[in-house]
Design a protein around this nucleic acid. Sequence first.
DNA 1: CACTATTGCGGAAACGTTTCTTCAGTCCGC
DNA 2: GCGGACTGAAGAAACGTTTCCGCAATAGTG
Lengths: 354, 354
Amino acid sequence: MPPSRPTLKDVALRAGVSITTVSVVLNGKRQGVRVPEATRQRVQKAAAELGYRPNEMARGLRRRSSQAIGFLSDEVTTTPFAVAMLAAAQTEAARNGFLLITVNIGRSPNDADMERALDSLVQHQVSSLVVAHMFHQEVEPLPGLPETTIFLNCRATSGSFRSIIPSETAAAYDATRELLAHGHTRIAYLGDDTGLVASSLRLAGYRQALAEAGIRPDPRLRLGVLPRVSGGVHGGELLDLPDDVRPTGVFCFNDQVAMGFYRAARQRGLSVPHDISVIGFDDQEFIASELDPPLTTMRLPHAEMGKLAIQTLLGHDTSSASWQPNGTGEVARLECPLVRRASVTAVRPVRLPA
Amino acid sequence: MPPSRPTLKDVALRAGVSITTVSVVLNGKRQGVRVPEATRQRVQKAAAELGYRPNEMARGLRRRSSQAIGFLSDEVTTTPFAVAMLAAAQTEAARNGFLLITVNIGRSPNDADMERALDSLVQHQVSSLVVAHMFHQEVEPLPGLPETTIFLNCRATSGSFRSIIPSETAAAYDATRELLAHGHTRIAYLGDDTGLVASSLRLAGYRQALAEAGIRPDPRLRLGVLPRVSGGVHGGELLDLPDDVRPTGVFCFNDQVAMGFYRAARQRGLSVPHDISVIGFDDQEFIASELDPPLTTMRLPHAEMGKLAIQTLLGHDTSSASWQPNGTGEVARLECPLVRRASVTAVRPVRLPA
DNA sequence: CACTATTGCGGAAACGTTTCTTCAGTCCGC
DNA sequence: GCGGACTGAAGAAACGTTTCCGCAATAGTG
């Protein structure tokens, strides 16, 4: 039975002032009410000696809002993939004295689940909400979400919410440019065929880069596959194209696809990057850097996104992020840096016919 | 400005009873105080019509404890690895109307960080705590932890806390048995050399299985390497041993090591499992199942562990878990199931000398 | 029939804050 | 010296619960 924590009353008693005064002092500036330095010191000393910590429940009750932020996610916390968003959000929240309450609502949340999740968050008076998704996607916002809710790695299809997403198109553009810069001209795009949002955005970037380089995209060099290792293996058929069509560089939808593509190349006795350059997407931990050769890829800025979400919610607008109006709300697109490793190299001199 | 949520008072008014009665009815059984069915119904109807939800802040203030559980972790939430523990814990908590408040304290938490994290949790009156670690390890518990704290994937070195850990030794035993069952007798152990707790435990299991099979462990078949891909590659030197010593099966400390070992084998022109059987540990997502061939491995029961932590905290002791007294506290060891894939096969007939 | 139990319910205190209001002094200008 | 402005601080009312206590009415007992 711990001698329950000291309260304002205890501090007041010890400092010889009223509860009011203690509260005012401890909460810092309150306009209109000035407390002389002497009293202030006395109070602070007493609080420190007692190890006083405010009771957040009482505070929340009175203020009708708590120092907690709700983090609602589909499976972010379940799958190891985008977990950096969560971690960064938590850290940033903590830096500001906020706690993160995480709730995941499963892969295909039915409305009842969502509502229950939201309910418990509201019951705890969370001051605001982040809604995060594993894969960049568009979602129909739940009714009853506060307007301040931030959508992370997804965009709300209605209402006027702020969203934070990776700048897919620019990244795909950069990836393609990287290949172009190494002299490649026959550049394949091993894309996703499951209709992910990222899919069309990245394709656009790929096309733009090609167009700017004056290269007409060859439809034979574009393949839609499952965004997994198996898809990449399947994409190996690009390597079976005739010599004058066969790509010398491949931009893969993600690192798993690249991993599969590596395998397909190996099975054909081809080596990366000697015979073919490969660039991935995601910079997935344990994959990208561990492949042989280590994979050049575009890093998804998950940590930055999570951090920005909390900063925005807390009003610390580090105006480094540019919010653009976007129909239903504002969108911040975060840059995906290129991570150069060893899977892209200069194009080989023209192959001599056998 | 939403017309703030209905309170007990509103429900009481509508049902024509007192606040007290509403509270009693809504909180279900309270011994000594019986409320006739008619009143009960009336109250429940009113509450439903109003969509009443208790204010957890007020409740927590009054009861001096909240419906929230603190989840303190080193980097569980940061790294995609053991995140299933977190997810499962959250889900189980939600099933019981509890919320999980996650705080991660970084890789090498200094005491100040820890204390601050603990402070904010205590300020929020969390009713209990889970302390989780990324890798199975022994930790010195922070002073001031409630006795009910549960250690997840780690063991407290003092105090008397309950801990939940994977049963490493049994798993290593099973892994080795799997190799033995396929006729292997020269079984290598590609272990960790960084002194992880799991290291010695797994080694014990390996030895025990060998002993039971009447095989004397060959020290040349035991190598300590970094528990990463690079370590596995390095472990490839086992394959350079003379024919009569060279292992036909390898038990790798984890899947990343196995991944590296695959590479080493390939570089030597050897194939898994044809030339050598490999078994891993962890069943790491995106790795084990995606290697070529898919890796047979021991699955770390992260989800089960997370779930059990919450159940234990909530007193729902699903006595499926066996708690064993253990010096400083009780320990539950959870079984690591064998996941059979394609990297273990029957030992090849004796090699003919070239 | 006069008592005690029992049943059904409401009053009100507490939980620890924040914040509005009040109030006693002090200092000032005239 | 005297009203008024300003200072410094305290009183007290919330915030929405839970829960102790007690009261009325009914039911049970001798």
